[in-house]
Design a protein around this nucleic acid. Structure first.
Lengths: 221, 221
DNA sequence: GAGGCGATAATGTGATCACATTCCCAGATC
DNA sequence: GATCTGGGAATGTGATCACATTATCGCCTC
C-alpha cells in the first residue's frame, strides 16, 4: 500500500493521509462550498478515476458523506448531490437559526479583540469574492466567518452538527448567491461584530439568527 | 451476490437488504440502546464473522456509524465505542435540550388524542422494563416515547440530528440508568402528556427540556 | 410520430488477497 | 523488579475480480 511514493502529489497536507480520507475531505469541501450543482449524479468508478484510486476507498468516503447528508443515495445505490425541496430548505434554515445563535452566545464570553480583528479581515475577503463574483470563494469565506466565531464556543459536537447542516445546504448555496442582496450581507456581519464587541448577547443572537435566516428565506419564496 | 438464498435468516425485515445496510442497522440499534459498554473495542474481522459477511460491507457500515458519532476511530483506524468526557456529555445534553423542545413544540399542533393514548401505552411499557430491570428495553421504550412525539413535527432533518445525539449518548446511557430516580422519570413523562393534552406550548417545552436534561446532569456530577 | 421493448453498457455490491502498520507480550537486560 | 526490545499476531487499507441489478438507448411496432 503506497502512502507517499506517488510523486505526482504536489500538496503536502493531503499526503500521508489514507486514500479514503483524502477523497472524503476533498469531496466534503467541494460540496460544502457549493461547487457541485444540486441533483448532480456521481459514480464510484468516476470518483475513483478522478482521484486515481480503486473503488474501495471511494465507497467508504461516499458512504460517510451520505451519512452526513452531503450526498443522497437512491434505493438502488445511485449517488447524487441532494436536491432539496423548499420544505427541507426551510427546515435546515430553522436548524441554523436554532444552533448558530447558541454557538455564538457560548463564544461571546471568550471573544476578545483579536478575534474581532480576524473576523474583520475575513469580512474583507468576503467583499473581494463578491466583487469578483467568485461563488465558491464567497461561500467558503462566509462559512469561515461563522466557524471562526463558533470555534470559540468550545462545543465541538454542536459545531459538528452545524457543519452537517451547512453540508446539506452546500449544493443549494450557489443558487442562493445570485438571489442575495450583497449589502445586506455585509450589514448583518457588521451587526454581529458590533454585538460581539459590545458583549451584547441578545443582540448577538438576533444578529446571527437574522444573518443565517435571511438568505435562505428568499430562496424558498 | 446472493440476496435471500440463505435459509438461516429467520427475520423477514432484515432479508432483502444489502449486507452493509443490515450490519449498519443492527449495530446502530445496539449502540443506541446501550447494549455496548463505553470504550469497548471492535474489529472489522470480528464484526464480519459475527454477521457472516466479508470485511467489505462491514467497513462501510462502521465508517457510516463513525460519521454519526456512534463509533470512534483512532488515528490508526482502531474502532471503539465512544467513551465520553463529562464535558462532552454536558454538551450533548445541551443539544438535546435545544433540539427536543423545538421538535415537541412543532408536534404540538398536530398532537391528537390517539397520539396521547399511544404515548400512555409506551409509558406503561417503560414501567414494565424498569420493574424487570431490563436496561436496553427501558432505553428503547424511552426513546420510542420521544420519537413518537417528534415524528409528528414533520421535521425529518431535525429528528435525524436528535437521533444522532441519542446515538452518541447510547453507550453512556446504561450507566445513567442505575443512577436515575425511577419515579422522576414517570413524573416527567406525565408532565409532557399533560402539556400535550392541554396544548400548552411553554409548558411542553419546559417539560421536555427537564426530562431530557435531568438524568444526564446527575451523570456528570 | 409516439410508445413499448429488448440488448448492451454502466453501476453498485461483496469476497478475496496482499500488504503496511500497529499492538501486545514474552524474554532479555540493567 | 522495572524497563527496554524484538518478533509474531492482529488489524486496517487498498486493489482486483465476479456478479446481480439497473439504467439507457436504439429499434420495432402500431
Amino acid at each position: 500500500m503506497l502512502t507517499s511514493s506517488n510523486p505526482t502529489a504536489p500538496n503536502p497536507p493531503e499526503a500521508g493521509l489514507a486514500a479514503h480520507e483524502r477523497v472524503y475531505r476533498t469531496l466534503r469541501l467541494r460540496i460544502m462550498y457549493g461547487e457541485l450543482d444540486p441533483g448532480m449524479s456521481l459514480t464510484l468508478r468516476g470518483i475513483a478515476a478522478a482521484f486515481d484510486v480503486s473503488m474501495t476507498p471511494v465507497r467508504e468516503a461516499v458512504r460517510r458523506l451520505a451519512a452526513e447528508g452531503a450526498l443522497t443515495m437512491s434505493s438502488s445505490g445511485r449517488i447524487t448531490t441532494p436536491d432539496l425541496s423548499p420544505e427541507r430548505i426551510e427546515e435546515l434554515a430553522s436548524l441554523r437559526a436554532l444552533l448558530e445563535p447558541e454557538l455564538a452566545a457560548r463564544a461571546l464570553p471568550r471573544a476578545h479583540m483579536a478575534l474581532i480583528d480576524r473576523l474583520r479581515a475575513i469580512n474583507g475577503r468576503i467583499a473581494e469574492h463578491v466583487a469578483k463574483h467568485e461563488v465558491a470563494g464567497y461561500i467558503r469565506a462566509n462559512l469561515e466567518f461563522h466557524r471562526t466565531i463558533y470555534l470559540r464556543a468550545q462545543a465541538p459536537a454542536m459545531l459538528a452538527l452545524a457543519e452537517t447542516v451547512w453540508l446539506q445546504l452546500g449544493p443549494t448555496m450557489r443558487a442562493l448567491y445570485s438571489a442575495r442582496n450583497r449589502t445586506d450581507l455585509q450589514r448583518h456581519h457588521r451587526m454581529i461584530l458590533a454585538a460581539l464587541a459590545a458583549g451584547d448577547e441578545p443582540g448577538l443572537r438576533l444578529a446571527v439568527r437574522t444573518d443565517v435566516t435571511q438568505g435562505l428565506k428568499m430562496l424558498v419564496g
